[in-house]
Nucleic acid binder design. Sequence first.
DNA 1: TATGAAACACACTGAGT
DNA 2: ACTCAGTGTGTTTCATA
Lengths: 155, 155
Amino acid sequence: MPIGLQSELLRDRRNVELLSLLRDDPRMGTAELARRVGMSAPAVRERVMRLEEAGIIVGYRLELNPAALGYPVCAYVRVRPAPGQLPKVAELARRLPQVVECHRVTGDDCFVLKIHLPALDRLDEVLDQFLAHGQTTTSIVQSTPVPLRGLPLPD
Amino acid sequence: MPIGLQSELLRDRRNVELLSLLRDDPRMGTAELARRVGMSAPAVRERVMRLEEAGIIVGYRLELNPAALGYPVCAYVRVRPAPGQLPKVAELARRLPQVVECHRVTGDDCFVLKIHLPALDRLDEVLDQFLAHGQTTTSIVQSTPVPLRGLPLPD
DNA sequence: TATGAAACACACTGAGT
DNA sequence: ACTCAGTGTGTTTCATA
C-alpha cells in the first residue's frame, strides 16, 4: 500500500484538488468538497476513500499546543550510542513520552530525537537516561521560522 | 490566547477525554463524541469550541505520504550561518518548499531544518543554496523508530 | 466511475432548567 | 453550563447509467 509518485491517483487533477481542499480543512465534509470540485457527494466519498486506502492520505491529526499540555520547551537531541547500545537507544526513545519523534540517521550521530519538556531544568532527566547508552548533543529550540508544513502537491 | 498548563479547561476530566477521543480520530463528529462522554451534543460542541479558542487545540492536519507526493527521501540539515547571514538563512528556508520545518536553536549550529527530497542526488540543489550563507551538516533519515506522536494528556 | 433519490443521522439553534 | 426538541443539512446506500 505504500506508493510512489507513479500513483495513478495523483495524475487525476480532481484528486489533487480534493487533497488541497482537505489540507486546508481536514474536517471538511463530503458535501462541501463535492460542491467545490463540482461532483456528487458519493463520487467524492469514493475518491477520498481510495486516497486513504492507497496510503496517499496517511491519516488525520489533532494538533495540540504542547505548552498548554505543560511542555513549553522543545529541543532536538542527537544521540551517538556506545558500541552495541544502538537498539537500547531506540527502545528508550520509544519508551519516553517526552520523545515525540526519533529518527535513525546517517552521520556521526545515529539518532535525532525531538523532545518536549515542562522546563529547561528537566532536560537532565531525559539526557541522563540516554547518556547511559552513549553521547548526546542538545539543541534547544528558540523559535520556529518555519512551523511544520506540507509538501507541494502535484501540478 | 496562548495558554499555560494552568488552563482551567484541562483540569476538567471531560475536556481531557474529548481531547483523547479527538486525538484518536480527529474527524469524529459531535454526536459520536457526545455519546462516548455521556453528554448532549450541544454541550460537547461548546467544549470543543472552547478548547479551540483557548489555543489548546491548535488545529487539524491532513497527513500525506511524502513518498506518494514524490519526496521519498527525508533529511535533517543543520545550518551555521556566516556572520550577518542569519536572517538570509531563515528567509531561504521559508522560501524552499522542500523545507517542511525550520527551527532556530542553541548550539554551534543556529538552525535545524527538516527537508524532503525526490532523490538523494537532489540534495545538492538544496545544500548549495544554504552554503551561500554558511556551513551545513546533513543527516539523512534511514528509518524512524518513533514516528511523530502526541504528548501525554493530563492525568 | 459517476449520478440521483431516499433513509437515516447529524449539526445547529433557541427555549427552558 | 447543560438538556431537550425542531429544522435544515449532510451522509450513506443502492439502483442505475
